[in-house]
Computed example of a mutant assay.
Amino acid sequence: MFRGLIVDYAGVLTDPDAGDLYAAIDGLRERGVRTALLSNAAGGGSAKARLSAFFDALVFSGEVGFAKPSAQVYLITAERLGLSADSCVFVDDSRGNVAGAVAAGMAGVHHTSVESTLTELSALFPA
């Protein structure tokens, strides 16, 4: 059973239909799923204030010293959620980053559209 959802920002949460993803993230949090944003950005800047309402943890590669697809950045993110890697699902639009998360022990979802990602998340986090 998965207890954590980790999501990339650029390419996933910047999708034109991302409002539906934000709603799904809110719904999962209401069900007790821990959520994190994992970005290869240098730092959060103003994004931290805007995104902190949706996530239990915000991890930026420039702040932790490891970037996707390094296994270490996924493990740091899971740790910040208080979870093991194998209880987390990672969503990214880069196949290489998804492969890195899977190698670190997570389940991976390759984001190609909001609709397909929501379908996969509903299968991984059944109501």
Rank of each mutant, 00 (worst) to 15 (best):
D93P: 03
A24K: 15
M1N: 08
L28D: 07
L5I: 13
V12F: 05
S87V: 02
M106G: 14
D86T: 02
A47Q: 09
D20E: 15
S113L: 08
L58A: 03
N40W: 04
V7N: 01
G4T: 04
A127Q: 07
M1C: 02
A36T: 09
K48P: 00
G108R: 15
L58N: 09
R31H: 06
L75G: 02
F66C: 02
G100K: 00
V59G: 06
N40T: 12
P126V: 14
A42R: 09
L21T: 04
G43Q: 13
G100N: 00
A49L: 10
P126F: 09
S52R: 10
Y22N: 02
T112Q: 10
H110L: 14
C88R: 01
V12E: 11
A23H: 15
D20S: 11
S116L: 06
V102P: 12
L58D: 11
R50E: 12
F60D: 08
A53Y: 01
G100W: 00
D20Q: 15
F2N: 15
A104Q: 11
L51I: 06
L81A: 12
L124P: 11
L75P: 00
L38P: 00
G82V: 12
D26R: 15
G96K: 04
T119C: 05
G82Q: 12
S87G: 07
T77H: 08
G11Q: 12
S61C: 09
A123I: 00
F54G: 01
F54L: 05
A10F: 14
T112L: 02
R50Y: 06
C88A: 04
G4C: 14
P16F: 10
A71P: 13
L38H: 01
R50H: 05
L51G: 06
A10G: 00
G65T: 13
A53C: 02
